[in-house]
């Protein structure tokens, strides 16, 4: 990341993602049709949501697979608020997610070390190393073999998802890790994994483990 982008991320008065955080803060205490808001169960987000985002993806006993933070928010909407789940990349969903993620800023990423997660982790690692698409490239070929070099002018990072959801300058807006992964996949001309699919959850589980111990910097700004 260039020093300019880093400065933009570090300063909350410049970081455009803070606009979504403010929206999320408002949504946190906005009651749904049945009168329940996030705050009616979870109270104060800065206390109750501290460190939560750093543990995702986490195992969901109902669907028996790891789920992402946005899926957890949607589950709460469905089960507790009697509201319809929001579609992937919905602005409200990204706002909620960035507000929750902000509460873990600076904390170490600590993915769930759950036995039930290990098979998903293994498959995620396989996805990561699998060559795909017309360009026949795997994630590892860029992010393990060539990090720090440049691809079309931007540095190749080491695939540590520390700052999601991110404000990406190229998108001129907010986006999730899934959107970013799909970007890479269509970049190598492969068919991207569907949003909230099991494959996506596997890959995200693996990526979170790669970033274990690193500090959360969500909501981040990326080029």
């Amino acid at each position: 990341m260039s020093p300019a982008t880093q400065a933009m991320q570090k300063d909350d008065t410049q970081n455009p993602a803070m606009l979504w955080v403010k929206d999320g803060e408002a949504l946190w205490s906005k009651p749904a049709a049945n009168g329940k808001s996030c705050a009616s169960c979870h109270n104060d987000a800065p206390k109750s949501m501290k460190g939560i985002a750093a543990t995702y993806p986490a195992f969901d006993t109902q669907s028996r697979r790891p789920i992402h933070l946005s899926e957890r928010i949607n589950l709460c909407r469905k089960n507790k608020q009697d509201a319809s789940p929001l579609p992937p990349e919905h602005q409200d969903l990204l706002s909620m997610e960035s507000y929750v993620a902000l509460q873990s800023r600076g904390m170490s990423i600590a993915p769930h070390r759950d036995k039930r997660m290990s098979e998903f982790f293994t498959r995620g690692e396989k996805h990561y190393k699998q060559r795909i698409g017309q360009l026949d490239l795997s994630c590892a070929q860029c992010h393990d073999d060539n990090p720090g070099k440049r691809l079309a002018g931007t540095p190749i990072p080491q695939a540590h998802p520390t700052g999601y959801p991110i404000y990406r300058l190229e998108w001129q807006g907010m986006g999730s890790l899934q959107r970013r992964i799909r970007n890479c996949m269509s970049g190598v001309r492969a068919e991207p994994f569907a949003f909230n699919s099991t494959e996506m959850a596997e890959l995200e589980t693996y990526l979170a483990s790669r970033a274990a111990g690193m500090a959360m910097d969500a909501p981040a700004v990326r080029p």
Partner: peptide, 8 residues
């Protein structure tokens, strides 16, 4: 400093 949400 002023920052506003707008698609431009």
């Amino acid at each position: 400093r002023v920052l506003i949400q707008h698609p431009m």
